[in-house]
């Protein structure tokens, strides 16, 4: 399988701040990838780099084997739904579809009109008068009808109510089932991604914390609890992701490819949400550890 998105040491700097730093990823085709992280972690930067709206400060990025936005053909293969799903407020839905057909070589008008029809939208309605959910659906329609090999979606459901959110994800998954398109979907809401993603990238503080297939990640992470002990006594093949201790008890979240044989541990499997939250809080813990040292300097 070829990579739909491949980055090498990718970084993006704004002034003195790194929005994304030293990011190396290779995402295989045929997945629905969840790009998760808190707000400001670099998700939007990553997606805008992938679609060519931003240029990298360091490293390289290839999307479907080419530099982003390098040619009309490359642009035509990537569907993008931007954050807050922008649309031309004064143009009607039909005019947006015209735009799609004029600007994209492989535009599928049938798919577009059929979807608008299924959604019960009036093609003559102006985009400015659509609800957030309807506008998101319009943006998805535009991205789908260009017949992309890869769909990139930046927080498409963040501003939607639960019903619109569900409807949007249903539409998206139908498209995946029907056209076999690869998807990268960013969100800070874990619950949205749990159902739809089979590949996970956790982005925190401009860094990629973990990336891999969800089923593999869930199988290789375990929650251990037992008598209090120092995590450094664990076997070398068990990496501690998250830990908490009381005076008597230790609870660890470890990553290992090997079975856990130590009978002193009570081992429980973890959920998608546990996994994501563990990697997100890992970043916060490291920050806490760094704080006393900074305090001395200042």
């Amino acid at each position: 399988m070829t990579a739909v998105l491949e980055t090498m040491g990718l970084g993006k700097q704004y002034g003195r701040r790194w929005a994304l730093h030293d990011c190396t990823l290779s995402i295989p085709a045929g997945n629905v990838v969840g790009l998760v992280g808190p707000n400001g972690a670099g998700k939007t930067t990553m997606l805008q780099l992938a679609v060519g709206l931003l240029a990298p400060t360091t490293g390289s990025i290839a999307v479907l084997g080419d530099a982003p936005a390098s040619s009309p053909a490359q642009l035509g293969k990537v569907g993008f739904v931007a954050q807050d799903t922008p649309a031309y407020a004064r143009l009607s839905i039909a005019q947006h579809l015209h735009m799609g057909s004029w600007l994209n070589p492989d535009w599928d008008d049938e798919v577009a009109t059929q979807r608008i029809d299924q959604l019960g939208l009036d093609p003559k309605q102006r985009a400015g008068s659509l609800s957030g959910g309807q506008r998101a659906q319009l943006a998805l329609t535009l991205a789908i009808a260009k017949r992309p090999e890869l769909l990139l979606l930046d927080e498409p459901v963040a501003s939607l109510d639960p019903l619109a959110r569900r409807e949007f994800l249903q539409s998206l998954m139908e498209v995946v089932a029907e056209h076999g398109v690869s998807v990268v979907l960013s969100s800070h809401l874990v619950s949205d991604l749990e159902r739809v993603c089979d590949y996970l990238v956790v982005l925190v503080d401009s860094h990629v914390r973990v990336a891999g297939e969800v089923s593999e990640l869930l199988a290789s992470h375990h929650r251990l609890s037992g008598l209090r002990r120092n995590p450094s006594t664990l076997p070398a093949n068990q990496e501690v992701i998250e830990q908490s201790h009381t005076d008597k008890q230790s609870t660890l979240l470890v990553r290992t490819e090997e079975p856990i044989l130590d009978p002193n541990w009570t081992v429980t499997p973890i959920t998608f949400e546990d996994l994501v939250l563990a990697y997100m809080s890992q970043a916060r813990d490291t920050k806490h550890l760094g704080r006393p040292a900074l305090g001395v300097v200042s």
């Binding site: 629905v32 998954m173 995946v176 089932a177 159902r195 739809v196």
Partner: peptide, 17 residues
């Protein structure tokens, strides 16, 4: 049910189905 039908109802990844 086809993968598409399941997906359309549950909003889950078709690969799961």
């Amino acid at each position: 049910p086809t993968a598409q039908q399941v997906v359309a109802k549950l909003a889950i990844n078709p690969n799961t189905v």
